[in-house]
Design a protein around this nucleic acid. Structure first.
Lengths: 341, 341
DNA sequence: TTGTAGGCGTTATCAT
DNA sequence: ATGATAACGCCTACAA
């Protein structure tokens, strides 16, 4: 028979005071005599009493918990981001309920509701998939609905709405810059690879197309390849591609690694015969051989910043100015390109 | 002014019944007339009423939430495992609070207490680091203390104690087998690389030593190298190693990739001049070039099994037989070895 | 079958 | 400075 945890009544009795006084001591009220406080504190320590969070939550409507939605935690970019977010939250006395929603609308909606039903203090949507394609406002309706209940933060995707705060990368600019560099260095047949039609993917594609146009290269459909987000999938897709190409810009590092595998299989030398640029600058870049040039989208900074703004909203009420923060990216050159860092 | 959520009283009033009846309908009691049930259900649906989890928790002492402790979620092995666990829990109506404790005892303890204070229904310790080195029982005392409150499950590490359920791999056997194969194929100077002194690491090392002994190779200190868990750290450690070696068994895939990078830097051909075996069979194996041979420790199976046992303990009371489950590993051959799958 | 009332463990508002 | 008590929203004997 497991004896139940001591509660505030037990402490009050042991200390010979009322529960109100114990509560005051716990919450650091100044309306307690030094003597009483000390006495009560001693008992609390001795019994290692901690208040029941359910009872607290019932009255206070909060459990200092935030919900994190992520399509797939096993993705290296996502897990790195979650690590940063969790760290930030933990440092601020919050902890997080993690929910892996997958990429389908149904799952996103269901997991959002689940989190909401747990009365989290805020919601973080991690990944551009949550922003949808930007074509219809319907896609992101569940996010706005959630924002009616708690502050919502989106990372890597912009969703417009009340009580929604977004952090996004300067994706278009980043891809534009690197594509332009590749072309100026002599590449005439670059291709862009993506696995999704998310807002972020569209931005990258836009940057890619703009660079091509500016340089007088036709950006027809054969320059934009839709692939699945797996190494072999990308490799095989490239192996069976008819049109030739001399540079690859990938929407993420996994896809880029697939391109590297293609190069190996097709015996094309990197970066001489073919140049490859990844995206996210994730843990994979150093595993790859040769090591992968990639666009660093500043995961750490983005996550830290999001947590900071969240705490501000949560503690100060909603007095955060910027609802949309844009963080620019850096190109990091490694072995798969030769265009100058 | 955000109107507060409807509660059970509102529903009761709208339906013209008492809250007890609403509660009965919510919990599927059979002591409700079909007519009443239908009427109440309609209102519940219409108002999309969900019970307040805090109030539920207060009385029931549960919020259908389990805590997951992990040293570092950005590690590919850990994040893959968490993905499986979260999936399993979600399918069973539980969700999870994720806590990244780091590798230090202080952090492990603090995060454990934090989770416990949230009244999670169970605790999962993911990773061999939580089992300690096995030298002193003191190291794992906080786990036993936690187990006094809720059932505890450890993955990849064995901790003895009441209310503690462990799943571990046949690490010793797996390393023994693969090391022996390497030696039988002619390797005479294998080395074992690890970054930790965890129970699991010790088991692997034991298997390594046994294979050497059986084959008449001296297992002196130069055959066991302690490295940091980073690609470059391992590469540089091997580059500066004086004694020669012709095979590497690594305690995880990251370390193995470091060894591959060493081979590249030292211009040693894989697998002819040097053979490398990783551990975990994680997402990195396919990124690596050549692709990494690795020991598959069955992450999915392990996680599924753990969730299954957990649900059993949670729902049926603690009627689970096996407190310690051992899951054996498979060697998966790829490009860094040539000893036969 | 349905309703009433007590309990779960806090916090906060009153008095004192 | 301290204590009594209502309120938070639900579940569940016990009554009717």
């Amino acid at each position: 028979m497991k004896k139940d945890k001591v509660n505030i009544y037990d402490i009050a009795e042991m200390a010979g005071v009322s529960i109100a006084t114990v509560s005051r001591v716990m919450n650091g009220s100044d309306k307690v005599s030094e003597k009483t406080r000390k006495k009560v504190m001693e008992i609390i320590e001795r019994e290692s009493f901690t208040p029941n969070v359910f009872a607290q939550g019932l009255g206070l409507h909060t459990m200092h918990t935030v919900g994190i939605l992520v399509p797939d935690i096993s993705d290296p970019y996502m897990s790195a981001a979650v690590a940063w977010i969790e760290k930030g939250l933990s440092e601020n006395g919050y902890d997080c309920i993690l929910s892996c929603s997958g990429f389908e609308p149904e799952g996103k909606q269901r997991h959002t509701e689940m989190l909401l039903s747990k009365h989290v203090d805020a919601l973080i949507f991690l990944g551009s998939t949550y922003a949808g394609s930007g074509k219809s406002t319907e896609e992101t309706e569940y996010i706005r609905k959630a924002a009616a209940q708690v502050p919502v933060f989106t990372i890597n995707g912009y969703v417009k709405g009340d009580n929604i705060y977004s952090s996004v990368n300067g994706d278009e600019e980043a891809v534009y810059e690197v594509t332009k560099k590749l072309i100026l260095k002599g590449r005439r047949k670059p291709v862009f690879l993506t696995d999704s039609g998310s807002y972020s993917a569209l931005k990258k594609r836009k940057g890619f197309e703009r660079a091509l146009r500016e340089c007088g290269i036709e950006a027809d459909e054969s320059t934009k390849i839709h692939v699945e987000n797996t190494i072999y999938g990308v490799r095989d897709a490239l192996l069976s591609k008819k049109e030739s190409f001399d540079a690859v810009i990938a929407a993420n590092d996994i896809i880029a690694v697939g391109a590297v595998k293609y190069a190996t299989a097709a015996k094309r030398k990197l970066p001489e015969d073919l140049e490859i640029v990844g995206y996210n600058n994730s843990g994979l870049v150093r595993v790859c051989e040769p090591e992968l040039s990639s666009i660093d989208n500043k995961t750490e900074q983005m996550c830290r910043d999001t947590v900071k703004r969240m705490i501000a909203v949560l503690e100060n009420g909603s007095t955060v100015e910027n609802k949309k923060v844009v963080i620019s990216c850096d190109f990091v050159e490694r072995g798969t390109t030769d265009i100058g860092g």
